[in-house]
Amino acid sequence: MSVMKIVKERDESIDLLRFIGLSLIILAHVSPPEVLFNLRCFDVPLMLFVSGLTYAGRSVDTSRRFLGHRFMRLIIPVYLFLTVYFILVFLLKIFFL
């Protein structure tokens, strides 16, 4: 039995919206001038909208499989990063303070 894989073309307009949203979120955290700060009031809603566009029409297998996949993809890298980060901070405090 052959399995056909559906390949979707990348939508560059969604990529552009994602870039704009992420840029505005980053800009909000670096204390921008007042004029630019007023533009950032739609950054998080834009990212939520783009996420909805990205995931629209996707099927989710089961909740256990979905959570397992998300755990492996998101939680483990975060904990690995945090472990390395806190070890570095600890070592820097010991040797430089």
Score class of each variant (00 low, 15 high):
Phe37Gln: 15
Leu74Asp: 15
Leu53Thr: 04
Leu53Asn: 03
Val60Ala: 05
Leu39Cys: 10
Ala56Asp: 08
Met72Lys: 13
Ala28Arg: 02
His69Met: 05
Asp61Trp: 07
Leu48Gly: 07
Val30Thr: 03
Val60Glu: 06
Leu67Gly: 01
Arg58Gln: 13
Phe95Met: 04
Arg64Gln: 12
Ile75Asp: 01
Ile14Ala: 05
Asn38Met: 12
Tyr85Cys: 11
Asp43Tyr: 06
Gly57Glu: 03
Val84Asn: 09
Asp15Ser: 12
Val89Gln: 12
Gly52Asp: 09
Asp15Leu: 14
Ser2Leu: 13
Ser59Ala: 11
Val89Leu: 12
Pro33Val: 03
Arg70Ala: 07
Leu92Tyr: 11
Phe96Val: 14
Leu16Asp: 06
Asp11Pro: 03
Leu24Asn: 02
Ser13Tyr: 07
Leu82Arg: 05
Ser13Lys: 14
Val89Ile: 14
His69Val: 07
Val7Met: 08
Phe37His: 13
Ser23Asn: 10
Asn38Val: 08
Ser2Thr: 13
Val3Glu: 11
Val78Arg: 04
Asp61Asn: 15
Pro33His: 01
Gly52Thr: 09
Met4Glu: 12
Glu34Arg: 14
Leu36Gln: 13
Ile87Pro: 00
Asn38Ile: 05
Arg18Val: 02
Glu12Lys: 11
Ile75Asn: 03
Ser13Trp: 02
Glu34Asn: 10
Val60Ser: 06
Phe71Arg: 11
Ser2Ile: 11
Ser59Ile: 10
Asp43Met: 09
Lys5Cys: 04
Phe66Ile: 01
Phe66Glu: 02
Arg65Asn: 15
Ser51His: 10
Leu67Asn: 07
Met47Arg: 11
Leu92Met: 09
Glu12Val: 13
Ser51Glu: 06
Pro33Met: 03
Pro77His: 00
Met47Tyr: 03
Ser23Gly: 08
Leu97Thr: 11
Gly52Met: 04
Arg18Thr: 07
Lys5Thr: 15
Leu53Arg: 13
Ile6Val: 15
Lys5Arg: 14
Leu67Phe: 11
Ser51Gly: 09
Leu24Asp: 00
Met1Pro: 08
Arg73Pro: 00
Asp43Arg: 10
Pro77Thr: 01
Leu22Ser: 01
